[in-house]
Amino acid sequence: MTLVLDQRRPASRALALARKVNVAVIVFLVLYLAIGLLQPTYFEPAGLMNFLRRAAPLAILSAGQLFVLASGGFDLSVGSLITLTVIGGSMLTANDPSRTWWAIAALYGVGLAVGLINGAVVAFLKTPSIIATLGTLLSVNGAAMMWSGGAPRGYLPDNFRMFGRLVLHDVPIVKIFPIAIAVLAVCGALAYWGFHGAVFGRRILAVGDNPRAAELSGVRVRSVRIGVFVISALAAVTAGIMLGGFGGVSVDVGLGLELQSIAACVVGGVQLMGGRGSVTGAIAGALTLFALFTLLTLLGLPQPLKETAQGLILIAAVALGAWRRRRAV
């Protein structure tokens, strides 16, 4: 195919290159331009940095969800795991900053356990992941409720909240630099390495494309399935720690985030039935989604209209992606 393209006129070569760029990147740029026109502060470095800071948890969550989707599964439990992380963080630290570090370690331990359970149920009991993780969603939510006694008390210590909230000032060029962006950069790089830079990523795509063929070629399909759920759960704990820094402790921090992360991946060109996706796409999809939320808020639409508009725009983005893929063949 490349051979033929090279013989074409430069204009169509540029077009072919444009077609290779992830559609989510283009949609994001258009949306961000619209946001900036409405509210010029978004064009300033500080505005952009703040936008990225607030979008970072969804972007990390989507990068984790990508691993599960690419393997042909769904992880619906991440939203409730975020809630559990925030509530658990407040219970474990009990307002004592010296307990922050072991609390964070314990939360990652909880995430690891949830991921292992999800993965084991899917791999060994052959339960469809959409059902298995729906079960985990309910149990984890229940656990969070019980732990907090129904009404979450307490606050998160400042050193716990730093990951979401701390902003370095007087940084050259960008002026301010939120720690959240550094966390996003590290997580994004790790995800990129795991998905595109290591054999593991290719195994995930193989399992998502054709698990039977993968197994007959010697791939340990069960290990891959368990691995992707662990990755997704650890991403959820990370997102939860950051979200804990944004606002207060409540029982609905993670509400709906599982669907948002799936939507972000789909906008980013990840295929829901597995076998196709990229980290760039997942993160660009999350930024697009977040830009959309921001834009609709800036437009001052009433909440119900906002949600309707969100849905319609999502469908349009997905349809556009599918159309481009058909054209590409």
Binding site: H196, G197, A198, V199, F200, G201, R202, R203, L205, A206, D209, N210, R212, A213, A214, L216, S217, G218, V219, R220, Q271, G275, R276
Partner: peptide, 29 residues
């Protein structure tokens, strides 16, 4: 189709599947 091909992956990825199944998962693909 059902037991051999990874239809959406490249010719190369298909040819490398068994080798990758036994490789160190953290090495470059």
């Amino acid at each position: 189709k059902r037991e051999g091909l990874l239809l959406q992956q490249s010719v190369r990825d298909n040819a490398m599947l068994t080798q990758r199944a036994f490789a160190n998962p953290l090495r470059p693909p």
